[in-house]
Design a protein around this nucleic acid. Structure first.
Lengths: 206, 206
DNA sequence: AGAAAATAACTATCAACATAGCTATTTGGT
DNA sequence: ACCAAATAGCTATGTTGATAGTTATTTTCT
């Protein structure tokens, strides 16, 4: 049901055809709730069948073909608000990187460190992406955001931008935390490989 | 396939019956990779069928009933090492809390703050649990860990404990980061509710 | 004009997970 | 000796999500 909320949230910025929605999804909400197009198309049809969305055929090309444009129906807007009213349900932890690390004693020599370096690379990349996203939001150049802001007063606009930036700051902090964690892990592995060469600042007594 | 690795990892501490495995799972590996018993039992049978596990019937009660005890077969041990050799595959972000926060403009007054307070409560709880876990690991009182350590030399024992503590420290840091994030969120909401009453330390010019 | 590539819009299939059951045995109380 | 509660072990079913297609239209290049 969360995908549904993500779609409602995206459509609250204005009507979109299926394809445009899929594209905009992956460069906006998709950053906090990923979904492939194969999940989006059927869900849109279900939401339409349940009256959350209205649809209208718009021409596609010159040969009379059409594509479907979806818009938030009143029931959809109500569902959005209802979603925000619902308490959050937390999914149980399922973290492949943590699982690996917990059993590093089974990793052949060197592999654990390589794993952690890959972890750092991954979150470094995500950190950068998130920074760009935050910039695009703050400068209001992000297309989906710009479209959304047009619907509101200036005061409300500021709040909306702050909420989105806040959400991405959470992602940013998470990425940075993962990087710091992996670096500590590399330190531990080094300590184990070369015992006795420990940093004298941290262990002044030995 | 990650559940499979988690089960192999747990069984590497010694043989277990299905039930005992389910119990120990939820109080050890399950903290980093949750799985319900309904997923564990069938997976065990599949792993046995594929030769990763050996099994032997052990008596249950006095009326001749038996239960199945599983142990890591050589192929299972190989699979464990192979798993550690594999590069990590990262799952795409799917974070309900972040998704909510990004669309707080749809939350009725007061609801967003309640959401964030619940977020803090949730991660406070997890933080505590993780702290206890780290303590049990460091003092080597955790039963599954104790059983595992018995199989190794003292030097290896120290490494094993460090790896597990390291993994849980990652969880701990994450929990603390989530708490800090939600607190910043509450601050933002307050700012929005009472504009002008902003902290003079942060905005000395106004 | 015709072929190749890019764009737009879906569909099918399968594995992973969550929820909610069910049955048999043992233990503890009367 | 018998019943209720707790323990042990497992199954069925539906939903969500990942992977990998397919079909039709438009644009670009020769």
């Amino acid at each position: 049901m969360t995908l549904r909320s993500a779609l409602l949230a995206l459509l609250s910025s204005g009507p979109l055809t299926g394809y445009d929605l899929v594209k905009q999804f992956s460069s906006s909400v998709g950053h906090v709730w990923h979904a492939p197009d194969s999940q989006i198309y059927p869900e849109l049809r279900r939401m339409h069948a349940e009256g959350l969305l209205s649809s209208k055929p718009v021409p596609w090309g010159t040969r009379g073909a059409t594509k479907t444009e979806y818009a938030l129906a009143p029931a959809g807007e109500a569902a959005l608000i209802e979603w925000q009213n619902q308490p959050l349900t937390y999914v149980r932890d399922r973290d492949p990187a943590r699982l690996r690390a917990a059993y590093f004693e089974w990793a052949p020599s060197g592999v654990a460190a390589a794993q952690l370096r890959a972890h750092i690379a991954h979150y470094d990349e995500q950190r950068l992406q998130t920074l760009y996203m935050i910039q695009a939001l703050e400068q209001r150049t992000h297309p989906t955001l710009a479209r959304r802001l047009a619907l509101y007063s200036e005061e409300e606009r500021e709040h909306i931008v702050r909420f989105k930036v806040f959400a991405y700051e959470g992602q940013l902090a998470h990425a940075e935390q993962e990087i710091a964690w992996a670096k500590r892990g590399l330190q531990i592995l080094e300590d184990i490989e070369n015992p006795g060469t420990s940093d004298p600042v941290n262990e002044p007594g030995t």
